[in-house]
Design a binder for these strands. Structure first.
Lengths: 365, 365
DNA sequence: TATTATATTGTTACCGGTAACATATTACAG
DNA sequence: CTGTAATATGTTACCGGTAACAATATAATA
């Protein structure tokens, strides 16, 4: 009647024997079978009250917690999803991750973060890692699909063989997966129109590396918008730079020193708020007053936007909502139907003082 | 000679059968035993070259990746450590996590982030989760040890029964674990002395909730420092607030409106840069010029410090270094020696323009 | 009280790998 | 050509749980 297995052989050599209490130990001590312990653990109804209580007491006494690996192995999911994105250092991705984490948690899942360098192709190593862990699904975010990354398609296909995949990114390449993306057209249109309305004609765009798809997409949209409004689309009004404040500084310096003062733009649209932050600093350093000397609009509506001087007008792409949608879709597609569709979240322009208008919260479809 | 197990019974009901290739499938297809496949996987030498090649080809063909759970269950570690801290929304913790992630990765480990609300006690649920996953170790960061949290000690003890624990926090309560902490004395001393040197006498401190240990510690240190320099330690010069910019705004408003103008402080030390950011905004809104009207020093030396107006002087606690040390200690203590000691990283004052001095990078022991 | 239905509990075959130990090959010396 | 060492490969017992199925105890019904 007793468990056949010999009691745990503790101490594997000199190594410590941390927390080696198993379900067998509990079963033995309670004088029941492991099946009964499992039943108590899962709250199965057919356990007599006194038995349940006795087993539970022993579980509590040892603070026994069943191993996730063992459970997982047995067939049930680890209730973990993966989120692959650029380092969380960029506050945009911080927000994205945070929202995903909360949404996952609300659904009883854990969101494991995998950070990848934005400029590098997805390493095979990473895909291996994801598969090895047999996650319940993966969300990709960021400029992952940029240019024709070597083996991306294959890697994704392989991954999808193991788990559902959702991407939070511009629907660039045709990918066979659910894709949640931001409104890249609105993201360019909103600030351009806003500035146009305020009377600006020479509008410049700084930021993003054109090698990365969504930056180049944004650049194109920006140009199209300018043309649509009959504004000058001078190539000098477009300077490439990185994603950070330092890039913004450099970009402004480069653009303005290369340009005759009379041709200076009167407004700047930055790839993101970090770039805008750097741009603002450089502009002030060059003696310009903001927003009179130069209007500026950022993107992402970061926490610091209300606190810049002047407070920064910015486009909000609502990463939180995208993250939440992504997680929901991922959990829904859990059964591997391999649905393929994309959904978009509208951009919103949050008007502050950095371009001289003070219209409050303005939402443009 | 063939594998005894019947070939995988695919399709558990109507659910999808994603990536169900196991080591048995590979073994069968290669006409070898699973042991041989394992050998090929682990690079064991005693496999004939042609066998190895044949097996490897099949592994590659199926892009087979062994399950982490199964391996884990068999006894080896998941090579994962956990990092428990407040939401990554606070950029200080972002830096902390990021550095830990990189250090872990450099050692072949994965750093799993567990976010907890700073104001809540560690939920038993969380500890369960950590144990359930049988992590290789856990790092706690943030104000976890604040006040006498119910059951913290017990939870920690239980956790330590399963895995090594390292804390990145002020060594407040006596905890039986390795503790890496920042220089809380220097963190108060550096800015106070700096301001004193610049001739300030009325220095105020805003931020942090006194209920949380490291905030109150900082508050105390601040007062001690004032007294040591014979500066006024008026209680009105100390306003509690949260950890964010909004809290900073409110705190400044509250402090200054409650104070006769002649008694206004001439310098402000903020709990962190976010608080300082809010304070700066409020100060400007009240018509003060910075740094002439009010000097201000933040803490954490966040990425935006060089970009505030004026650029913000700030204390750097070097969270990255603490994170790296924590990870290293954790991996070292892997064998459960249960060492208990604490190590401190010195604080550094990074001088910018927000207090009227421009001395460059100044390090004070 | 015999009998059947029902409530409890136990037995056991996996889950996907790993590695100790057993066995089969091959290589080489005598 | 045979014996033995060295290689290469197979067998099998776990790892810690789960749950289908079997078995037993208890309650309900005839």
């Amino acid at each position: 009647m007793e468990s056949i297995r010999k009691s745990r052989t503790v101490g594997s050599g000199g190594k410590s024997v941390m927390g080696k209490i198993t379900i067998y130990d509990i079963a033995r001590e309670a004088g029941v079978s492991t099946a009964t312990v499992t039943r108590v653990l899962s709250g199965h109804p057919s356990v007599r009250a006194d038995t349940r209580e006795r087993v539970q007491r022993i579980i509590d006494a040892h603070a026994y917690t069943p191993s996730a690996s063992a459970r997982d192995l047995e067939g049930r999911s680890t209730r973990t999803i993966g989120i692959v994105m650029p380092p969380v250092i960029n506050p945009y991705f911080t927000r994205l991750y945070n929202a995903a984490y909360e949404e996952a948690q609300a659904n009883g899942y854990y969101a494991a973060l995998f950070q990848m360098n934005e400029n590098q192709p997805i390493r095979r190593e990473l895909v291996d890692e994801l598969i090895r862990r047999r996650l319940g699904g993966v969300i990709f975010a960021g400029n992952i699909w940029s240019s024709e990354r070597s083996g991306l398609k294959e890697a994704l296909e392989r991954l999808r063989n193991y788990m559902p995949v959702v991407a939070v990114c511009p629907p660039a390449t045709q990918l066979d997966c659910i894709c949640v993306h931001s409104d890249l057209v609105g993201c360019s249109r909103l600030p351009v129109r806003h500035l146009h309305t305020l009377g600006h004609r020479r509008i410049a765009f700084i930021g993003g590396s054109m090698r990365l798809s969504d930056a180049s997409r944004r650049g194109q949209n920006f140009l199209e918008e300018l043309r649509a409004l009959d504004l000058p689309d001078d190539p000098a009004y477009h300077v490439d730079c990185g994603y950070d404040a330092e890039g913004g500084e450099r970009a402004v310096l480069r653009m303005l020193t290369n340009l005759d003062r009379r041709r200076w733009p009167t407004a700047l649209i930055a790839f993101n708020d970090l770039v805008a932050l750097g741009a603002m600093k450089q502009l002030k350093q060059m003696g310009l007053r903001l927003p009179e000397g130069m209007a500026i609009i950022g993107c992402d509506n970061q926490f610091f936007c209300p606190y810049t001087d002047p407070p920064m007008t910015s486009v909000d792409l609502h990463p939180e909502e995208m993250a939440r949608s992504a997680v929901r879709e991922l959990l829904l597609s859990h059964d591997g139907d391999a649905k393929t569709f994309s959904m978009m979240r509208d951009a919103t322009l949050v008007v502050r003082e950095s371009c001289g208008a003070r219209l409050g919260y303005r939402k443009l479809g």
